[in-house]
Simulated scan of single mutants.
Amino acid sequence: MTLHRPLLLAGLLLASLSAMAQYQWIDKDGRRVFSDRAPPADVPAKNILSQPRGGAASAAAPAAAESAAPAASAAVTAAKAPAPGVDKALEDKKKQAEAAEAAKQKADEARQVAARADNCKRAQGAKATLDSGMRMARVNAQGEREVLDDTQRAAELKRVNEIIAASCR
């Protein structure tokens, strides 16, 4: 029984704390007004002296929220909307990234075209040498020089023709 009384007293004290939540402001006639409701929307923020939960006098958003709900919801929507400068900057960054990617792809394609043209030129030179009929030699895996016979020459000519077909389009 002795434990129940302090708990009951603590519960009553906690319930009474919500009654202490009051607004205090100066109305248009210069009188101090105390209320448990937010001041009307026509009261400037500088005239609000105190709010519940230690709110500062400059916070007029709760007062406007209770008395003018549509205006407050419009303000919240406007606050959630991104700033115009941020969107423009983001769009500019996206455009720059896309332009950089396009330039990189163009450079890669140009390198591939140049490599293909070089391969074509070399293959055509090798074909001209093979078609000339003069003796050709190459170095084998052991580092020795060996002269190409007719079958090796035909295989090399076939390989060079495939390179020309692939690179010289």
Rank of each mutant, 00 (worst) to 15 (best):
Phe34Tyr: 15
Phe34Arg: 14
Phe34Cys: 06
Ser35Leu: 03
Ser35Arg: 01
Arg37Met: 13
Arg37Glu: 13
Arg37Asn: 11
Ala38Ser: 11
Ala38Met: 05
Ala38Gly: 04
Pro39Met: 11
Pro40Gln: 04
Ala41Cys: 11
Asp42Met: 01
Val43Gln: 04
Val43Asp: 03
Pro44Ala: 03
Ala45Cys: 10
Lys46Tyr: 14
Asn47Arg: 15
Asn47Ile: 02
Asn47Ala: 15
Ile48Asn: 02
Ile48Tyr: 02
Ile48Arg: 00
Leu49Lys: 13
Leu49Thr: 10
Ser50Trp: 07
Ser50Phe: 00
Arg53Val: 00
Arg53Gly: 08
Gly54Met: 04
Gly54Ala: 07
Gly54Gln: 08
Gly54Ile: 02
Gly55Trp: 03
Gly55Phe: 05
Gly55Ile: 03
Gly55Thr: 00
Ala56Lys: 11
Ala56Cys: 11
Ala56Phe: 05
Ala57Met: 14
Ser58Val: 01
Ser58His: 08
Ser58Asp: 10
Ser58Ile: 02
Ser58Phe: 10
Ala59Gln: 15
Ala59Glu: 15
Ala59Gly: 08
Ala59Thr: 12
Ala60Trp: 03
Ala60Pro: 03
Ala60Thr: 07
Ala61His: 00
Pro62His: 05
Pro62Glu: 02
Pro62Gln: 03
Ala63Met: 02
Ala63Arg: 01
Ala63Cys: 02
Ala64Ser: 09
Ala64Phe: 06
Ala64Thr: 10
Ala65Val: 03
Ala65Pro: 07
Ala65Met: 02
